[in-house]
Structures are given as C-alpha cells and as structure tokens.
C-alpha cells in the first residue's frame, strides 16, 4: 500500500507542476498581450493605415504600451484605428498627443507611435480620439527628394561661380594662388624661421649633455634609475591594454560593417 501512496504522490506532483507551467505560460502570453492589465482605448482616424494590422504594437516615447485593437473603415477615405493602451501610461499621454503609423526596423512590421503633443496639459480620457499624422507616402518622399535635388542644383551653380572667380585671381584665395609677390615674402619668412630653429637645437644639445653628466653623478643616480623603472613598467601595461582592447575593436568593426549594409539596403529601397 505504501508503494501505491508514493505513486499517487508522484503523479500528483507531476500533474500539479505541469499545470502550473501551463498557467505560467498562459499568464506570460497574456501579460505580453496586456490582457490581464487594465487598459484604456484611444481612437485615431487615418486616411491610409499603410498595412497596419490588429495586434501591432503601440509605442509611446519608444516604449511598447499597447496593441492595435481594431481597424474599421469609416468612409471611403478614412479608417478608424482603436488603440488599446495600458492604463498606467494614461497620465503621460496628453490630449494633444499625435498618433502616427511607422514601421519597425527592417522586417517592416507596422506600429503606431504616439508622440506627446503640444501645449495641453490635460491627460487623455478613455475612449478619446487623438490627433493623427498621415503615414509618409512614397510619392511625398519622392517629391521631397526632388526638392532636395533642386536645391543641390542651385548650390553647385553657385560653387561653379566661386571657382571661376578664384581662377581669375580675385579675392584672398585667388591672390594666394596666382600672385608671385606673396609667395616670395613667404619664402623669406621661412628661411628666417629656419635660422631660429638651428640655434634652438644647439641649446637643446648642450642641455642634454648636462643631463647626462647629472645622471652619472652618484647623488642623483638613484632618482634616474627609479624613473627608468617606472617608464618600463608603464610600457608593459600599455602593451597589455592593447591586447585587451583588440576584441572590442573587432566587434566595433563588425558593427560598422553591418551599419554599412543597412545603409546600402536603405539606399536601394
């Protein structure tokens, strides 16, 4: 009979443990879906949701604070997006807050970003509609790029004008490049400077001889030896540090190369 009791206990422990595991899992999933927390709902209307799906994340100052609960078509040109947001961030979202749709990283998951609005200080209420900004459209982006290109044209035109003036010897840069007198006076200055340097060099040689003599003086010998040791030690430490630094450097390089690929991809897009 004892045998059976121990079997029962083992089965009991196993069953309880696995059911607890399941409940923990369900709780963890639910927590991520903000299912077991008190939430509020906000609405935003967009002309174009740009492929937003129910369940996409909502970010406020870069923190995930909720998920998109619903997307309903209101009319032929507007869609209303229901935003399920944790109640604890409610005080921070003011009534002038602006919702915008953007995408998350390379994989292109859409998300709704809520940015804090201007001038109002009252927090939003449950069920409020908040202001929205339309997601950036591709043609708009293209329009802006063409504007940038026009600006670039103007700038390069002006640059060309400057270069012709320089070529003509106008202005200080042009004079530097094209007038002989300035070059000659510069040469004179340089040769004078050379003379000064030479005498300074001689002075320095004399000083080093004096120092050598001092090193051999028994009174000061100890001081110089100590200094020498300290120098050697410092060198060795420096070497060790170099080794230790190597790995992080490599990582940095990798990261850099990744950045460059992402930049490339962005350009391609």
């Amino acid at each position: 009979m004892q045998n059976k009791t121990s079997q029962k206990i083992k089965v009991g422990i196993f069953t309880t443990a696995t059911i607890l595991l399941l409940l923990t899992g369900i709780f963890l999933i639910g927590r991520n879906k903000s299912m077991f927390r008190s939430t509020i709902i906000l609405y935003g209307t967009f002309k174009n949701v740009g492929g937003l799906l129910e369940g996409n994340n909502i970010r406020f100052v870069g923190i995930n604070v909720g998920t998109v609960e619903s997307i309903d078509i209101l009319s032929d040109s507007t869609a209303r997006v229901g935003l399920r947001v944790q109640k604890k961030v409610q005080p921070f979202i003011k009534q002038g807050a602006i919702a915008s749709i953007s995408s998350d990283g390379l994989m292109g998951d859409k998300l709704v970003a809520i940015s804090s609005g201007t001038n109002t200080t009252k927090p939003v209420n449950d069920g409020d509609a908040i202001n929205t900004v339309e997601p950036m459209q591709l043609d708009k982006v293209m329009g802006r790029i063409s504007g940038v290109a026009e600006n670039a044209e103007v700038i390069t035109g002006q640059l060309a004008g400057i270069v012709t003036q320089v070529n003509q010897g106008k202005g200080s840069v042009g004079r530097l490049l094209y007038s002989d007198s300035l070059a000659k006076s510069l040469e004179g200055t340089i040769s004078e400077a050379k003379g000064t340097m030479r005498s300074a060099h001689k002075g320095a040689e004399g000083f080093s001889e004096n120092m050598e003599a001092l090193k051999h003086n028994f009174l000061l010998r100890g001081y110089f030896r100590k200094k020498e040791k300290a120098r050697v030690k410092a060198e060795q430490e420096e070497k060790n540090d170099d080794k230790a630094d190597e790995k992080p450097k490599l990582k940095l390089k990798k990261a850099k190369s990744k950045d460059s690929t992402t930049v490339k991809i962005e350009k391609e897009q």
Binding site: G25, I26, I29, G30, R31, N32, K33
Partner: peptide
Amino acid sequence: FFRKSFSALEFSDVMPAL
C-alpha cells in the same frame, strides 16, 4: 529570451496545440 519567446506567442498558437 523568454520575454521575446512569449511576446511572439498568441493564445491561438497555444490552445489548438494543447
């Protein structure tokens, strides 16, 4: 790791599997 794992899971993944 576990936060990432569970954030990807939905109830519609767990329940039918169970």
